[in-house]
Simulated scan of single mutants.
Amino acid sequence: MPRETGRKVIASNRKARHDYLIEETVEAGISLTGTEVKALRMGRASLVDGFAQIDRGEMYLEHVHIPEYVQGTWTNHAPRRRRKLLLHRAEIDKWAGKIRESGHTIVPLSLYFDNGRVKVEIALAKGKKNYDKRQALRERQDKREADRVMSAVKRQER
Rank of each mutant, 00 (worst) to 15 (best):
P2A: 11
R7T: 15
K8P: 00
K8G: 00
I10C: 08
I10W: 07
A11N: 02
S12W: 03
S12N: 09
S12E: 15
A16N: 04
A16G: 06
R17Q: 11
Y20G: 02
L21G: 00
E24Y: 10
E24W: 05
E24D: 07
T25C: 12
T25Y: 09
E27V: 15
A28E: 07
G29T: 00
G29V: 01
S31E: 14
S31Q: 13
L32T: 13
L32G: 08
G34F: 08
T35P: 02
E36M: 10
V37H: 04
A39I: 04
M42L: 11
G43K: 03
S46K: 12
S46L: 11
L47E: 00
V48P: 00
V48S: 08
V48R: 05
D49K: 09
A52Y: 03
A52S: 12
Q53H: 12
D55R: 13
R56T: 06
E58V: 10
E62W: 01
V64G: 02
I66Y: 05
P67I: 05
E68C: 12
Y69G: 01
Q71Y: 10
G72V: 06
T73Q: 09
T75Q: 14
T75P: 00
H77T: 08
A78G: 03
P79D: 09
R80G: 03
R81H: 05
R82Q: 08
R83M: 15
R83S: 08
L85A: 03
L86F: 05
R89E: 06
R89S: 09
A90R: 08
A90Q: 08
E91I: 11
D93S: 13
W95K: 03
A96W: 11
K98C: 07
R100F: 10
R100P: 00
R100W: 10
R100C: 09
E101F: 09
S102P: 10
G103Y: 07
H104A: 07
T105W: 03
T105M: 09
T105N: 10
P108M: 04
Y112W: 07
F113W: 09
G116Q: 11
G116W: 12
G116Y: 12
V118M: 05
V118N: 02
K119R: 15
V120S: 00
E121R: 05
E121D: 14
A123E: 05
L124G: 03
A125Q: 03
K126Y: 12
G127P: 02
K128C: 01
N130M: 12
Y131E: 15
D132Y: 02
K133Q: 12
R134W: 08
Q135R: 15
Q135D: 14
Q135P: 00
A136F: 09
L137V: 09
E139K: 15
D142N: 14
R144G: 02
E145K: 14
A146G: 10
D147C: 03
R148H: 11
V153N: 13
V153I: 15
K154R: 14
K154W: 06
R155I: 04
R155M: 12
E157Q: 14
